[in-house]
Structures are given as structure tokens and as C-alpha cells.
Simulated assay, not measured.
Amino acid sequence: MSGMSDVRLALHGQELEAGQGRTLAAPASSRWSLFWHRRHTRKALLELTAEQLQDIGLSAEQARQEGVKPFWRG
């Protein structure tokens, strides 16, 4: 398995963990934590090379669409 696939799996695992603790009335601190995580990972998507995107199974357009989403949109 390549390094980027490992990173993708790790990020996916973190997203799953974050999602398991969420409820409809999530505390503001966990909501802001989720927003920060989204902002950070979306920014990272915009900085990946074509080879890295290919490794994680995304096209440049898919990465761009996700990367430019506002942090408050899921």
C-alpha cells in the first residue's frame, strides 16, 4: 500500500470517529472542531499533486470541488 493510501485511510478513520460522537445537538466545541477539521483537510486537498490525487482515487476536478467548499458545508 502506498503512503497516500495510508493517509487517506487514516483521515477516513478520523472522520468516522468524529461522526460517531456527533448528535443533532452537538456541543459548540465539537462543532468548531469539525469545522476546523473540514477546513484543514479541504485546504490539503487543494495542495495535492496529480500523482497524489491519482493515488487516493480522486480527479483534480473532484478535489477542487471539495476543496473550495465552505468549512460549514458537509
Score class of each variant (00 low, 15 high):
1 M>P: 10
1 M>Y: 07
2 S>N: 14
2 S>V: 08
3 G>D: 12
3 G>T: 09
4 M>P: 03
5 S>P: 00
5 S>D: 06
7 V>S: 13
7 V>T: 14
7 V>W: 14
8 R>F: 09
8 R>D: 08
9 L>G: 10
9 L>F: 11
9 L>N: 15
10 A>M: 08
11 L>Y: 10
11 L>N: 09
12 H>S: 14
12 H>L: 15
13 G>Y: 13
13 G>M: 07
13 G>L: 09
13 G>H: 09
14 Q>A: 13
14 Q>Y: 04
15 E>V: 10
16 L>D: 06
17 E>Q: 04
18 A>I: 05
18 A>V: 05
18 A>P: 00
18 A>K: 09
18 A>T: 03
19 G>K: 04
20 Q>F: 15
20 Q>L: 13
22 R>N: 02
22 R>S: 08
23 T>L: 03
23 T>K: 11
25 A>S: 12
25 A>G: 05
26 A>M: 02
27 P>L: 09
28 A>S: 10
28 A>L: 06
28 A>I: 08
29 S>R: 11
29 S>T: 04
30 S>P: 02
30 S>V: 13
30 S>Y: 07
31 R>P: 00
31 R>M: 13
31 R>I: 13
32 W>M: 12
32 W>K: 14
33 S>V: 03
33 S>N: 07
35 F>P: 01
35 F>G: 03
36 W>S: 13
36 W>F: 07
37 H>M: 02
38 R>K: 06
39 R>Q: 07
39 R>V: 05
39 R>F: 12
40 H>E: 12
40 H>K: 12
40 H>G: 01
40 H>S: 10
40 H>F: 12
40 H>D: 15
41 T>G: 01
41 T>E: 07
41 T>N: 08
42 R>P: 00
43 K>Q: 14
43 K>M: 09
45 L>C: 02
46 L>D: 01
48 L>Y: 01
49 T>C: 02
50 A>N: 10
50 A>K: 12
51 E>C: 02
51 E>V: 08
52 Q>M: 04
55 D>N: 08
55 D>W: 01
55 D>Y: 04
55 D>P: 03
56 I>N: 01
56 I>C: 09
58 L>F: 03
58 L>Y: 04
59 S>V: 00
60 A>W: 01
62 Q>I: 03
63 A>G: 00
64 R>F: 07
65 Q>K: 05
66 E>F: 05
67 G>T: 01
67 G>D: 00
68 V>N: 05
68 V>A: 01
69 K>P: 00
70 P>T: 04
71 F>E: 04
73 R>N: 04
74 G>R: 10
74 G>T: 11
